[in-house]
Amino acid sequence: MPLPTVKRRATAVATGLLVTAFGLAACSAPAAAPSASPSASAPASQTRQVETNDGTVTVPANPQRVVALVNAALAYLDMGGKPVGITGVDEGTLADLPAEQQAAYRAATNVATSSGEIDLEKVASLKPDVIVIQTGDSQYGKIGDELKAIAPVVFLNQESDWKFRVEAFAGAGNLLDTLNQQKAKYQQLTTSIKQNYADVLKTAKIVETYRFAGAEAGQFAINQSLCAEAVKEEGIVNFEASAPMSFEQIGKLAKYDLILYNARSDGQPTAGIQPLLDTNAWKLLPAVKAGHAKPVYCPWGRSYGFMAKYLEGLDQALATLPKK
C-alpha cells in the first residue's frame, strides 16, 4: 500500500531538508563522504535501505542491472548511472546532455510502450536487480505490484521533494559517490552566489521567461521552470509566482533588471523561446537593450547536476548587473 502522498509542499521541503541536513551532518567536510546509509563500497551480498514514497525498500548495495523509468530516467543519467533499461528521453533533450550520458542512454534498452506506459515483460526480460521509477500515483497504482514482482522498486511520486528523490535514486543505483560530489558543487555554488551577489539579489528585480516548444502560439510563462522553483526554495532569488503570459503583455517585463530565458546547454535559445526573442516588444525591453537578458539551461528534470548548470548560468547572468 503506498504511503499517503506528501501533498503540502512545505512538509515535503521540510522532510527533504531534514534528510539532507541529516546526511550533511554525518559528513565532516564538503568533500565526498559516506551518507547516512552503510558504506557504498559494500560487497554485493549486502543490502541498503532506501526511503521511497512506497515505504522503505531493501535494495542490493551494488546493483549491476538497473532500470530507470519515466521521470527518473533523466535524473538517473545525470548522476552517471548506466541503466540496462530506460524509458524515452526525446531527441531534443538528449542532444543537450553530455556525451557520456547520451551514450549511456543509447546503450540501454527502451522499455516504454507509448511513453507513459511501460512494457512490463520487456522490463522482466532484462532481469534487473532494482527498478527506479518516478511517475504519478495513478499510473504507479496500475503497475506497481507488477513491477515489484520483478525486482525491488524505488518509487517516487511527482510531489516528492527533488533532493529526497535524487537521494533515493542514488541509493538505489549505488551512485552515492557521484551524488555527493554533485551535492557539494551545488552547495558551493549556492553559497558563492548568495555571498558574491548579496546586494544585487536584494535590490535587483529578476524574472525568468520560459516557453515550451509545444506551447500555444503567442504565449509564454514567467518563473515556471523547475529550476526557478528550486532556486526560489533555496532562497537564492526571490522569484515571483509563476504565471502564464501573452506576447501582448511583454511590456510588463519592462520593470525587471535581469531577464533569464531558457536555452540549450550551449547557451543558444531553445526552439520554444525563440519566437519570444524575435518580437519587437522584446527587443525594446530595457533589460534586453542593456544586455541583461541571459540564457539559462534547465531541462525538465531535477538533479544536482542540472541545478548546478542552472546556477552557473545564473552566476554569469548576475555578473552582468552593475554592482551596487
Binding site: G218, F247, Q249, G251, N280, A281, L284
Partner: peptide, 10 residues
Amino acid sequence: GFDQFAIRDF
C-alpha cells in the same frame, strides 16, 4: 512603444 507593438503585432 510596448502598446504600439501590442496593437500592430498582435
